[in-house]
Simulated assay, not measured.
Amino acid sequence: MTHDQLLFRPAAEADLGRIMEIIRAAQARMRARGSSQWQNGYPAATDIRRDIERGYGHLLAEAETGLTVAYGAVLFEGEPAYEAIEGRWLTTGPYVMVHRLAVAEERLRQGVARRFMQRVEALALTRGIGSFRVDTNFDNAGMLALLAEAGFVRCGEIRYGAEHREAFEKVLRRQ
């Protein structure tokens, strides 16, 4: 299946079951690799339901079957934790960010996460947003590789309570 056959759309309540299957499989993969990320019950169905209600939840689905193959929360409102970065962001203006990105087990290593990120970039540009920020755990090798490949620059660390995350930014256009 080509990536052009993947539809990017807002998630709906009816998608919650499939999204949670994808999230649970991602949690198990992280656990198997020894990662501490997503091992404390997060993200739970309540987190995803809240994403959907707020309009943050987005997914990639196969055009032909409608099957969801990736999920992520796309936010344009900013992230309070990003204000206290230990380091320095590349830009100072508005930005888009992604949280809770996960790809279906059967679609791993097929460029699905990269396609999701590309669709988020395109959405941001249509809204006049020229910056894309992301954070991830220091041991999330898959996400770290995706960010490097996609041209994100490590800007420092941010904290969620006692947990540290690597912080990245990609300039989509000059601000």
Score class of each variant (00 low, 15 high):
143 M>W: 13
139 D>K: 11
76 F>D: 00
135 D>N: 10
148 A>H: 14
143 M>L: 12
60 L>K: 13
128 G>T: 04
51 D>C: 05
123 L>E: 10
116 F>E: 02
99 H>D: 08
44 A>T: 10
91 T>I: 06
48 I>H: 08
138 F>T: 10
101 L>I: 03
47 D>R: 06
79 E>P: 12
93 G>L: 07
35 S>Q: 09
136 T>S: 07
25 A>H: 05
18 R>E: 04
124 A>E: 05
66 G>N: 03
33 R>M: 05
56 Y>L: 14
132 F>A: 02
83 E>F: 01
119 R>A: 14
100 R>F: 07
157 E>T: 08
126 T>H: 14
124 A>I: 03
138 F>A: 09
51 D>L: 06
107 R>E: 05
21 E>H: 03
82 Y>F: 15
106 E>I: 01
89 W>T: 00
91 T>Y: 09
114 R>S: 15
22 I>W: 10
151 G>F: 00
102 A>T: 01
144 L>A: 01
155 C>S: 07
125 L>W: 03
115 R>S: 15
43 P>Q: 04
128 G>F: 08
28 A>M: 10
56 Y>E: 13
128 G>C: 07
121 E>M: 14
36 S>E: 09
95 Y>F: 09
69 V>P: 09
58 H>N: 11
65 T>A: 11
153 V>N: 11
54 R>T: 08
146 L>S: 10
17 G>R: 13
133 R>D: 03
103 V>N: 14
57 G>T: 03
80 P>C: 02
137 N>Q: 11
15 D>Q: 02
78 G>K: 12
56 Y>I: 07
43 P>F: 04
129 I>M: 13
28 A>P: 06
135 D>E: 11
50 R>I: 03
91 T>D: 09
156 G>K: 12
45 A>S: 13
15 D>W: 05
79 E>N: 15
70 A>F: 01
115 R>N: 14
109 R>K: 15
94 P>I: 04
105 E>R: 15
95 Y>P: 06
144 L>F: 05
45 A>L: 09
15 D>K: 06
116 F>N: 03
83 E>V: 02
64 E>L: 12
77 E>W: 13
47 D>N: 10
18 R>V: 02
96 V>L: 11
60 L>C: 12
123 L>P: 04
93 G>S: 11
66 G>C: 08
149 E>A: 13
25 A>R: 08
36 S>F: 06
128 G>P: 05
45 A>M: 08
58 H>Q: 12
61 A>T: 13
105 E>K: 15
115 R>C: 15
139 D>L: 07
132 F>H: 02
29 R>W: 14
32 A>F: 01
40 N>S: 09
98 V>S: 01
35 S>N: 11
78 G>T: 01
118 Q>I: 09
137 N>C: 09
155 C>G: 02
77 E>C: 10
142 G>K: 10
127 R>V: 01
53 E>L: 07
51 D>E: 07
152 F>L: 01
61 A>D: 12
21 E>A: 00
135 D>M: 08
